[in-house]
Computed example of a mutant assay.
Amino acid sequence: MSDQLKTVDQLTITFLVDNCIEWFTKLPPGFTHELPQHLRFHHPEIDEVTNTPVLDFDKFCCGAHGFSALIQTTISDEPSASASHLVLFDTGPDTQSLIRNLSAMQIPVENINRVITSHWHSDHTGGLLSFLKLRNGDNESASTSPSAPPPVPPCACIVDVHPDQPIARGIAPGPTYDKVVCRLPPDPRFEQIEQAGGVVEKHSEGHTVANGSVYVSGEIPRVTPYEAGLPGAMRWKVGEDGKGSWVPETHIMDERYAAIDVAGKGLVLFSACSHAGIVNVVKDAVSKFARPVYMVIGGLHLAGADFSPRIGPTVKFLSEELKPAVCYVLPMHCSGFEAKVALQQAFGEGCVPAGVGLKVDVVGDREQDKRLLAAVY
């Protein structure tokens, strides 16, 4: 695999798991709420009395504390068989929300050939096994009609993971951060992933996937003084004597981001939780690709008293210090209300209230890209 990132002609994003559902706020061009997608494309039932489409809320998306985004990239001059790719970035926290929302958005799961896990926290990996089982027909929602022909097995789904999987991770709240009050649910083990039909690929270094159209980072350099990791993060480790204990793990070093370069626009960055700090993510992407950052997406982990002091310098960097500034910021998942307000004040309509079910279409422009090449840092 290479770390050479190709420029794409179109990027389509469908948010499949997020903490928020947002139906009514005005959106910029290229952004579509969930509700009109159901009305236009999902053939809702027509009410016999009023001859009007009926909204079936049982078939709409649900929110959950986690993140998952479906990424579709298209390169126009590639052969038709390899021009378009579907990649799932994270899988949410549980066995139900991603499965429900894939059904609600009528996603052809058999066409998703790669899952990228951003890091080993179960609010990002909890839906992985249920997704793989659904994709391979081993699911209660799959057809069980005796007259139906057996499903054609899809191509194997690659699960792109960091190799450093913890035994367990826990939370130790402040002010002392020394007593673990709970552990997170276990992440799927490598053998469980393979048993569910996935093909495990372990990557600690940056690389491209989806025929070079999506970059998956390696370890994110920590260079900003104010992005100091996750206070109270703990990891269970077993010593040479076979005894286990909780040890501090402020820096979640297995975290990775994803990047797509859209012609005429620049980089679209996915940072599912930003334990490394979103400024560190942006700085790493810019240093690697020398391209403007068009859009920043995902959890920014700026919620709560521990992270509030980071909001000001983070917003200032994205809106003022980075040249050119980011065009769109989509603060999701663990970003927090205070950070969203600050970003909205700085970016105006460039801060998009994204949520589950939202669809984003970013259309490239090769002619504009020639002019964009001069906008390097």
Results as ranks from 00 to 15, higher is better:
151 P>Q: 09
221 P>M: 10
72 Q>V: 09
26 K>P: 08
117 T>W: 00
281 V>L: 04
214 V>N: 00
308 S>T: 15
365 D>F: 09
147 S>L: 12
258 A>R: 00
301 H>R: 08
30 G>E: 02
29 P>K: 15
216 V>C: 07
212 G>T: 06
341 V>W: 04
234 M>S: 05
158 I>N: 04
161 V>H: 04
365 D>Y: 06
283 K>L: 11
376 V>L: 15
111 N>Q: 15
52 T>E: 13
12 T>W: 06
196 A>N: 01
300 L>W: 11
155 C>E: 15
367 E>A: 14
308 S>Q: 13
335 S>F: 03
207 H>Y: 05
100 R>A: 14
40 R>L: 13
35 L>C: 08
262 V>T: 04
305 A>P: 06
287 S>H: 09
114 R>W: 06
203 H>N: 13
108 P>L: 04
76 S>K: 10
249 E>L: 12
44 P>I: 08
163 P>M: 03
284 D>M: 00
118 S>Q: 05
276 A>W: 03
228 A>F: 01
344 Q>Y: 14
277 G>K: 05
280 N>E: 04
367 E>F: 09
292 P>G: 03
362 V>T: 03
80 S>N: 10
244 G>I: 04
322 L>N: 07
50 T>N: 12
172 A>D: 01
220 I>D: 01
31 F>K: 03
251 H>G: 08
169 R>D: 07
153 P>L: 09
372 L>T: 00
57 F>W: 15
118 S>T: 07
